[in-house]
Nucleic acid binder design. Structure first.
Lengths: 349, 349
DNA sequence: GTTGTCGATGTAACCGTTTACATAGCCGTA
DNA sequence: TACGGCTATGTAAACGGTTACATCGACAAC
């Protein structure tokens, strides 16, 4: 490898000391304007780029944010990363990405490996078990949590109000002369999934006729939705089915079609997340929309603020928005009630 | 920030020299087994993690691969990153992600910023103009190119055989008594798009009846597909429409429905890419499937090989697979002809 | 017993920055 | 003129690793 240009080369060429070059580049302290300009000109001529390792060694800053995700499947994560990346670019920060952390031990290892490479970490932990990892995070490393309705011990967190979203969807499905709403649940150890279940249950209790619970276990995968449709269909379909996420709802839709059950005529159907596919299936799917990219953006801003020495607000809750499409009968949702916090106060945080 | 544990602390606690600790950790040279074990035990006890900056400063390795993408929208990129990440994890490498490089100047800046932070870079450049950036890449930094059927000057590249894919789709659409196939093109400066156009044209020339060209300009966006449908519909629909990517095909599908033109009865329709949505639209979309994650995986392996001192093969061409769904009449594709290279030899590389 | 070889370990230079501290020049004031 | 204060710049000591080279025993060969 060819020898890289160093700050000393620049100093020599500009006929100043390395300290002056450093100061000129970092924009700090008082450097005479002509000197600064001259130095920057030489920097450009030599195409000098400071060595980030050396810089981080002496300044203890890396200008890099770590992003730890449980998985990378699907449009959900690409949206999230997009939001994070957008904000990072605007702030001149780099992004170190790591994903596919099935078990807590793996996540802990990834956290450790990032230690000296980043100034702060955005960590998404949907799995309940992963919470155990959080306290193990290095002391001096600001950690921002994403998803999974649990707050870390004093760590900033950005969560979706899954409870309120599920409540709203269930309420919507239970309207207009309906008698029963079945629920296809997500993985038991997934926090988002269990919050959605809680929302479903709470909404059922609030219905006038006090609908019976009807819960079928799923795993957030498309195939489990299809299977749930078979199970539910065989028992004689309810008036509506609420799947804990969109992928299961899509599988469910196919399963229902195969079983000759029409949506929405025979049964109303809804999902959760508002992934892009929901607009294109037939019929388009009623769901709860989550501002994914925006969450990512704000999480990064939060990291940047902490690094800059700020004390950010700890808990950020994002309200899902009910999106009513053809898969369910339309009935207006009381969005203002949600904003007033009527669902909200029941959230476990 | 609390002072981090350094290699000197470990050396002191283990009662050996820093050199021995370093050697024990890096697994090189001859360190007596008991010594090594003792050192590793202390390392674990103190929860010591080497400072990556210091390490990269003296060893000139970062164990990090840079990933430069033009954009992050949609499932295409999430699949790509997933493939790359998978391989990186397996190799113990980190990933530095940067995206949204609209113009070449921005891409060049990103490339420069990554210089001292990574050992190698995977760069996706779909835009023809971005090719200008490639030579500007730092000399000592191995660069692997992804996408955009052009080879860099001696750089390894991983490309999709857009020409062959488009040829196959056009040939498929032109079968069974068809007379005309319209093409909805992608952005003019996009290399993939123009290769697909070339494939369409070449296939038309090969048809028995020598179909006339019918090209409508699009931009790879859904809306432009819808607009194209209106244009085409107004002129009296052809027998088939081939959209240069799936998103436009989906827009086109909606546009045709609005115009009261039935797919596939009145007109056959096909896209390109095989993004997940294609399976769920109605009717499901015929398209050309590309092994996105696998491309990403191989690109990373290539980077890792180069870093390890290997001389990798330069050009990797991925054959799209024709996926025939309900949006077009079924007709078997001569996959073996493609493998034999019959389309292949006409590719500009 | 001396010498040579070899394996295990220690010493210290170096990697390229940042930054505390020293210094040099300039100007205004006493 | 001498001096204090201020600004612009230089000097050199960290930062935390890696690694070339030196050293030190132990053991084998003579």
């Amino acid at each position: 490898m060819l020898r890289e240009v160093t700050i000393r080369d620049v100093a020599r060429a500009a006929d100043v000391s390395v300290a002056t070059v450093s100061r000129a580049l970092n924009g700090i302290e008082n450097v005479a304007s002509p000197t600064r300009e001259h130095v920057l000109k030489i920097v450009h001529e030599l195409d000098y780029v400071p060595h980030s390792g050396a810089r981080s060694l002496s300044s203890k800053r890396t200008d890099t944010i770590g992003v730890l995700l449980p998985d990378l499947h699907g449009e959900f994560f690409s949206e999230l990363i997009r939001g994070i990346d957008l904000a990072a670019r605007a702030r001149g920060l780099h992004l170190l990405l790591s994903s596919s952390h099935g078990d807590p031990a793996e996540a802990a290892a990834a956290l450790r490996a990032m230690r000296s490479r980043v100034d702060s970490i955005i960590m998404m932990s949907l799995n309940a078990g992963n919470d155990a990892v959080v306290p193990a995070a290095p002391a001096g490393l600001p950690l921002v949590l994403l998803g999974g309705n649990r707050r870390g011990p004093g760590r900033p967190s950005f969560v979706i109000d899954n409870y309120a979203g599920a409540f709203a969807i269930t309420e919507h499905l239970a309207g207009e002369g309906k008698r029963s709403v079945a629920f296809v649940a997500g993985p038991a150890d997934n926090i988002e999934a269990s919050e959605r279940l809680r929302g479903y249950r709470a909404a059922l209790k609030c219905t006038a006729g006090s609908f019976p619970e009807w819960i079928v276990q799923g795993d957030f995968g498309e195939e489990s939705g299809r299977k749930a449709a078979r199970t539910i269909g065989a028992a004689g379909p309810p008036d509506a089915i609420f799947c804990a996420n969109d992928m299961m709802a899509i599988g469910c839709l196919e399963g229902l079609r195969e079983a000759g059950i029409a949506v929405p005529d025979d049964v109303a159907l809804a999902g959760f997340d508002d992934i892009p596919i929901t607009r294109y299936v037939n019929p388009p799917l009623t769901t709860a929309a989550v501002p994914i990219a925006e969450m990512g953006r704000q999480a990064l801003e939060c990291c940047a603020d902490i690094i800059a020495g700020g004390k950010p607000e700890l808990h950020h809750i994002f309200q899902p928005e009910l999106v009513i499409r053809a898969s369910s009968a339309a009935r207006s949702w009381d969005a203002t009630a949600n904003l007033r916090g009527e669902y909200h106060d029941q959230i476990t945080l």
